[in-house]
Simulated scan of single mutants.
Amino acid sequence: MIDPKKIEDMAKQIGALIPSQLRQAADDIEGKIKLILQQKLAQLDVISRDEFDVQRQVLARTREKVDLLETQVQALLAERTTPSTKDELPSSDQQ
């Protein structure tokens, strides 16, 4: 997830934009902004970079397996459609 320190820094930056006359209210606003940011970021469907890399590796392995299976299926289909020489009888034996 998002680093809580980054959220706090963002809230402070937004709070710093408030004029000095309203500094007392700024502390309250900063806290509310921090809370809102945490809530909204929690609603996002985000994963960590580590989770993403793991899933990418899983997908790569799965793709390799699918490619191998496709090759095997094609080979089996090719064997099935190729006429077998065992089934053919020589014409000289039939006479």
Rank of each mutant, 00 (worst) to 15 (best):
L69D: 13
A25D: 05
S20Q: 12
A60L: 06
R61I: 11
R49S: 15
K34V: 00
I18E: 02
A78D: 09
D27P: 02
A60M: 08
I33N: 01
E79N: 15
K12N: 03
A16Q: 01
P19V: 00
A60C: 02
Q38I: 10
L44P: 06
E30D: 07
T82D: 04
D9I: 04
P19N: 01
S91I: 15
V58R: 14
R56W: 14
Q74V: 07
P19S: 03
D9G: 00
L17Y: 11
T62Q: 15
M10G: 02
E79K: 15
K86P: 10
I18M: 07
A25L: 10
G15K: 14
S84Q: 02
I47E: 13
L77S: 08
E64I: 12
V58Y: 04
D87P: 00
T82W: 03
D28S: 08
S48D: 13
K6P: 00
A42M: 05
P90Q: 06
K86W: 09
K86I: 15
L69Q: 10
L76C: 13
R63L: 06
K12W: 04
D27A: 13
M10F: 07
A11V: 01
E30Y: 02
A75E: 10
A60Y: 13
K6C: 05
A60P: 00
E30N: 03
V66N: 07
I29W: 10
L37A: 02
R80W: 14
L44N: 02
A25I: 11
D28Y: 13
R49M: 15
L35N: 14
P90F: 01
Q55V: 00
I29K: 14
T71V: 05
L77N: 15
L22N: 03
R80S: 14
A11H: 00
L37Y: 02
V73M: 11
L35I: 07
D45H: 05
E88K: 14
I36G: 01
L41P: 08
I33D: 00
L68R: 15
A42V: 04
